[in-house]
């Protein structure tokens, strides 16, 4: 979900800092090669991670290497903070956002999306000694798109509101969960926004915030870290609705040509099991999206 501050994308500079990786596409696609700049955060493990030596690794760098080849794109991946990324895209500083960006209705107002290349759920994490550690409905998956809404789900959401009343929840600024929090928890909780996930995690560990809501793919590996042993996963898992229809690449609305090339490459990577292989490698779970099964999942394509 989210990523944090923005960094700039210095074309030459980032490259000089070796924060950039460049892959040239194999000439197998029929279309002429095109050079693009892809913005990622480099601080959202395991999706994208900056190694101390400056190289970018993670699920997205791995996947992009394959997608760029298949779409015949010469891709330059640059690290940049989340909170300026949409601005950077619109300012043509970058051509693609690859930062575990969930396809949400709110974001579709400003961005075009590729097909989803992964799908994840949102989970809550709190401290083990917090009263919230005993939150109800642990492990229950709430599909916010389910229609009609099952009774169990309505009850679980109202239980959530009661349990979280008056608590402080930390999220990265402009996160995917903004829409969900606005709709279901507005006025119930206090929300604190952070520029980077790292800052949010530090405040979660110190107890300045009561809990956070973030992707399971980010939080599960975090919980496995030795210094995060005081943290615990609580409450229901969330999917659909305001949380979006999976992770897609963010694109400018007028760049339909790029969307088509990326979509074809994503479709082939989903169908031949590449996405499954990479998600097992990085998330320890299969995050392959169902491209045609859910109408919501395909609705993320570029809009006219």
């Amino acid at each position: 979900m989210s990523r944090l501050p923005r960094a700039g994308v210095g074309f030459g500079l980032a490259a000089a800092l070796s924060l950039a990786a460049t892959w040239a596409g194999a000439a197998w696609a029929g279309e002429p090669q095109r050079a693009i700049v892809i913005g990622t955060e480099g601080a959202f493990p395991p999706w994208n991670i900056t190694r101390p030596d400056g190289t970018l690794i993670g699920f997205e760098p791995d996947l992009l290497q394959i997608l760029c080849q298949r779409a015949n794109l010469r891709c330059q991946l640059v690290a940049q903070d989340w909170d300026g990324m949409i601005g950077a895209l619109q300012a043509h500083k970058i051509d693609v956002i690859a930062d575990a960006l969930q396809i949400t209705p709110a974001r579709k107002a400003v961005l075009a999306f590729s097909l989803p290349y992964a799908i994840t759920t949102g989970v809550f994490v709190t401290q083990k000694d917090s009263p919230l550690a005993r939150m109800a409905n642990r492990g229950l998956v709430l599909d916010l798109d389910a229609s009609p809404t099952p009774e169990r789900q309505t009850e679980a959401l109202s239980a959530l509101r009661e349990e979280l009343r008056g608590k402080t929840l930390g999220v990265a600024i402009s996160s995917t969960y903004d829409g969900f929090l606005d709709k279901y928890l507005a006025g119930v909780i206090t929300i604190k926004s952070y520029r980077t996930m790292g800052e949010r995690d530090l405040d979660l560990l110190s107890g300045r915030i009561d809990l956070t809501l973030d992707d399971t793919t980010y939080l599960r590996p975090l919980l496995a870290a030795p210094d995060a042993r005081d943290l615990v996963l609580v409450g229901p898992e969330l999917i659909g609705g305001e949380l979006g229809a999976g992770e897609g690449f963010g694109l400018r609305k007028d760049d339909t040509a790029l969307a088509e090339r990326l979509n074809a490459a994503i479709r082939s990577a989903v169908e031949d099991g590449t996405v499954r292989r990479l998600s097992l490698k990085w998330f320890k779970a299969d995050a392959t999206p169902a491209l045609d099964a859910r109408p919501g999942a395909t609705g993320g394509g570029p809009q006219p």
Binding site: R6, G8, V9, T50, T196, L202
Partner: peptide, 22 residues
């Protein structure tokens, strides 16, 4: 640092956040 340029301040912030040794 708030623009994400990896100068000294931002580098230390990224290091502090990802190692959790602020």
């Amino acid at each position: 640092a708030v623009t994400g340029l990896s100068e000294l301040m931002r580098t230390s912030l990224v290091a502090a956040g990802s190692t959790r040794h602020p």
